[in-house]
């Protein structure tokens, strides 16, 4: 029977089993479950949001249905919490055993693979079917936290070079500005460009699933593997669906994580028939415009320089009552 692992002894046994399987015990998780036989933990697994992880079965218990039982419980409970699809990262050698559980392969490199249960990707694409045009189309994936003059320049330049430009706004809620606010700033800031279509990335590009280190901004070596899967997923599933043959990106002089994502883009996407165009960042006052720089000004409560960094649409949002509440919660600048 599958049980939640809660006590200190449970956790110790879980750590041991996970270590022995060549994985590492990696919090955080929303759910951690296991199966005991004669007091010994024989199988373990965890769920962190939509991601299943730390799945391990003791060598003497392999070949049975313990893994199936663990996944059943993790998925069943996750479903009750409102999730309808689940991901797993695993080594390429384990892909077949998860496919037997109705997981579908989203992307695989020589070192790791990403699979999904519940066909969320298929449903995500289907929801946007009426937005697909024959192309050739272009794409930008951006967080726009907030939407700057640099974003505006990139979008404008890209839109002029393709039939239709799909602008994917990162769905993940890990930024100062909520998705709704970011989406709104982008919508208002690109409303005059008729061939730009806004989309959200859902879990399928630059998300905590496909690219968690984007939000951490650290030099995590595991990040490189995941970034590769993020781009493979884009190249194999998203780009063909939207007839995307070009991806546009701003040069990245500031963040090491984003710079290595750009480098990976140049390495991976052309192999799949997607041309990558990197545009030089726009400067303001001898330094590149970036959303980070805007947020730094906001943190200092300095709204005078904003106009040189963000378009008017963003500026009026930032200075609105609603916008102020995001970056100036105490209302001191008001």
């Amino acid at each position: 029977m599958v049980t939640s692992l809660l006590s200190t002894d449970d956790l110790r046994q879980a750590c041991d089993l996970i270590d022995a399987s060549g994985l590492s015990f990696e919090p955080p998780f929303d759910d951690l479950v296991g199966i005991f036989q004669a007091g010994r933990l024989q199988a373990v697994g965890a769920r962190d949001g939509r991601v299943l992880k730390m799945l391990a079965v003791a060598p003497e218990a392999q070949g049975g249905s313990l893994l199936d039982d663990i996944v059943t419980v993790l998925v069943g409970r996750g479903y009750q919490e409102g999730l309808d699809s689940f991901f797993i990262f695993t080594s390429p050698s384990q892909v077949a055993s998860f496919q037997a559980l109705n997981f579908h392969l989203l992307a695989a490199s020589s070192k790791s693979a990403l699979l999904e249960y519940g066909d969320g990707l298929g449903r995500y694409l289907n929801r946007h079917r009426q937005l697909v045009t024959p192309g050739p189309n272009g794409a930008i994936v951006a967080n726009c936290n907030p939407f700057t003059r640099g974003h505006r320049y990139l979008v404008e330049e890209a839109a002029a070079q393709v039939e239709r430009l799909y602008l994917f706004v990162v769905r993940e809620e890990r930024s100062l500005f909520s998705f709704d606010y970011r989406h709104r700033m982008v919508r208002e800031g690109t409303a005059d460009l008729p061939n730009v279509t806004l989309l959200d990335t859902s879990s399928y590009a630059v998300s905590s699933v496909t690219f968690p280190t984007y939000f951490l901004k650290t030099g995590d070596p595991g990040g490189a593997l995941q970034m590769e899967l993020d781009l493979l997923l884009f190249a194999k599933h998203i780009a063909p669906f939207f007839h995307i043959t070009r991806r546009f990106v701003g040069s990245e002089p500031l963040s090491a994580t984003t710079a290595s994502y750009n480098a990976a883009m140049h390495r991976i996407l052309p192999e799949h028939g997607i041309e990558v165009t990197e545009l030089e960042r726009m400067d303001a006052g001898n330094a590149p415009i970036s959303a980070t720089r805007v947020r730094a000004l906001l943190a200092e409560g300095d709204s005078r320089q904003l106009a040189s960094l963000v378009p008017e649409t963003t500026l009026s949002f930032l200075l609105s009552r609603e916008g102020r509440r995001v970056w100036d919660p105490k209302g001191e600048a008001a």
């Binding site: 199936d68 039982d69 996944v71 559980l101």
Partner: peptide, 12 residues
């Protein structure tokens, strides 16, 4: 709601 399991010969 959800019913069933992920075991072989079963369904969710």
């Amino acid at each position: 709601v959800q019913a069933g399991t992920m075991q072989s010969s079963d369904l969710m």
